[in-house]
Nucleic acid binder design. Structure first.
Lengths: 169, 169
DNA sequence: CGCGCTGTACCGTCCAGCCGGTATAGTAAC
DNA sequence: GTTACTATACCGGCTGGACGGTACAGCGCG
């Protein structure tokens, strides 16, 4: 889909130039399209950013759903580690920054709420699940700002230790 | 200090209007100062944002240092919970968003690195300390996006559970 | 031709930063 | 104590440029 390529362009631009440089002209150029072409697909800049955020959320939800684990928390943990390890994560922090209007972040707030409340009643030890999910969130944050902080073996150990916090199924 | 009032104005504007509305004129107006007056103290908008970020980091570092705990991790945990509970935290996510230029976030990256590496060798169980710190980071994030998610008793329980993860001193 | 899509030229707005000016206070010489 | 000078703090109009959005003119394809 053409739209996806445009979103990719916006995303990569955002990643290595920052929110300040996210102009319609720049996105169009990076996507190898004229500004008119870009605006044909996204009528306004807001629409572009909105799509960016929604795709981000949908991607992660999909990744969580794709995990074959026995609880939401375990899937969430596995998905987070997979995402972080793959290095495809410069995105989050920067995208949220691109939203000049805080209302654009509403879907993100909704998702955040979902990610940290979903399936809590099904957990044997809800507070332990809470902690694991919080650590996942923190991992996103830290790894985004400092990608070198953990190596493969540390990720592995982190995964094991976090799993160990959850009551065995 | 006059500069602090200007930073406060910028911060509150950022909190309830978003990064898009952070203009020199708007900051000046909210601070009850003319644009020229604002620019007298911060020669450029970049300088203003830089100061905003640096003050944020310094404030938190101070809060951590003020805790009377037996390890950095414990102080970090106590400081995080104090900050989150006090509700004075709409700031982080939004301020980082205001930085158009990613280079402005360099101090934040440096701080993040420090917060998650400092004193690790002094920890009896480094990975447990890591997990606690990550959960702190996640708590910031989640509570920023969804301030209602935890009530006082949950914060208290969270604190106890996280402390329990650390080897007793 | 009609339709999906692209490219170009242009407009209006908005904003950062500049600059000339004002007010107050301190200092120092006479 | 008055004059002259300097530093600090602040004001507000101006402008140049950038950017979002619009209008319109292709262009290939069925």
């Amino acid at each position: 889909m053409r739209k996806d390529e445009l979103l990719n362009a916006a995303e990569s631009l955002l990643a290595d130039q920052g929110a300040g440089c996210l102009t319609l002209a720049a996105v169009a150029e990076r996507a190898g399209v004229s500004k008119g072409g870009l605006l044909y697909h996204f009528a306004t800049k807001e629409a572009l950013i909105k799509a960016l955020i929604e795709r981000l959320i949908a991607d992660f939800d999909e990744l969580v759903a794709a995990q074959d684990e026995s609880s939401y928390t375990r899937s969430y943990l596995a998905a987070t580690l997979a995402a972080v390890r793959s290095g495809r994560l410069r995105r989050w922090a920067v995208v949220t920054g691109a939203a000049g209007d805080p209302q654009l972040l509403a879907p993100l707030r909704e998702a955040m709420c979902r990610w940290h409340r979903a399936g809590m009643e099904a957990e044997a030890d809800p507070m332990a699940a809470q902690i694991v999910r919080l650590a996942c969130e923190g991992l996103w944050d830290v790894a985004t700002h400092d990608p070198e902080i953990y190596d493969e073996s540390q990720y592995e150990e982190l995964h094991q230790r976090l799993l160990a916090l959850l009551p065995s199924p």
